[in-house]
Design a protein around this nucleic acid. Structure first.
Length: 234
DNA sequence: ACGTATGTCTGTGCACAGCC
DNA sequence: GGCTGTGCACAGACATACGT
């Protein structure tokens, strides 16, 4: 296994993850967390971890829940100092980018390149533990996201995303971020951009946003692409 | 539409410690 | 010894996502 060194930000977050894991006494509990969140390798299911540990998937779920609750309390009480450096980095990044966005995009920016799966998992894990963030779980309609806690809970963020999708749908054609900002009541255009990036129903071309099914923002074949170029040239 | 994989909820049994 | 609370572990039922 080769160890590559990432950017200082990526290394800081990696160190935080290691320090958090050190606060878990039992080997078994560390295994559950690292494997469930894919902190070192790819994510594993409850079933796979249960098989490894010789317990049922349900017991793994119960343990995972209990461990996370413990870690969250410790993090909220400031008992995991290592987490604060990582928090600061993520908060700074989000503050510069609309206070909300895809976990993958945050990880990419911190990596100054396409982030590794590990780095993405690390960012998501910090987001899960820290009370300063809210994680938006991935579903059919949303990418995995991270938001500053002041933006509201997961449900609120999903509602905000939905309102942007609805506005674009009603508009009926691709629209730029500034125009959307004029039509909605979000604090900044970049917040709209961050929220919109979380929707799987939306796509953008040069910061002009539309429904993902519209070829004008999401050209799928050469005909669409030619159309977009011609339309762009008037 | 259907079967399969995965995750979640609920109820139950067992072991153990502390207390009377 | 009997009672009670707690933690651990499991099975079954159900919900949801996903692939065919």
């Amino acid at each position: 296994m080769t160890e590559t060194t990432g950017t200082p930000a990526v290394e800081t977050i990696k160190t935080a993850i290691e320090d958090i894991l050190k606060t878990i006494d039992q080997e078994r509990e560390r295994e559950i967390i690292t494997r469930r969140f894919g902190l070192y390798e790819r994510r594993e299911t409850l079933e796979q971890i249960g098989e490894l540990l010789g317990i049922t998937r349900e017991r793994v779920r119960q343990l995972e829940k209990a461990i996370l609750a413990r870690l969250k309390t410790a993090a909220a009480d400031g008992k995991i100092p290592a987490i604060s450096d990582a928090e600061r980095l993520i908060i700074r990044d989000l503050s510069e980018n609309g206070r909300v966005g895809r976990v993958q995009d945050v990880a990419n920016r911190l990596s100054k390149d396409k982030a590794s799966n590990n780095t993405r998992s690390h960012v998501a894990f910090i987001g899960e533990l820290s009370p300063r963030f809210v994680i938006i779980n991935e579903t059919d309609n949303y990418h995995q996201g991270i938001s500053i806690a002041e933006n509201g809970n997961e449900k609120k963020v999903r509602g905000d995303i939905d309102s942007i999708v609805k506005t674009i749908k009603n508009h009926g054609q691709p629209i730029d971020i500034e125009s959307l900002h004029g039509m909605l009541t979000f604090e900044s255009p970049s917040q709209i951009r961050g929220l919109a990036s979380l929707s799987k129903k939306l796509a953008n071309l040069k910061d002009v946003w539309g429904l993902a099914k519209w070829p004008t923002v999401n050209p799928k074949n050469i005909r669409d692409k030619i159309y977009v170029i011609l339309a762009g040239n008037g």
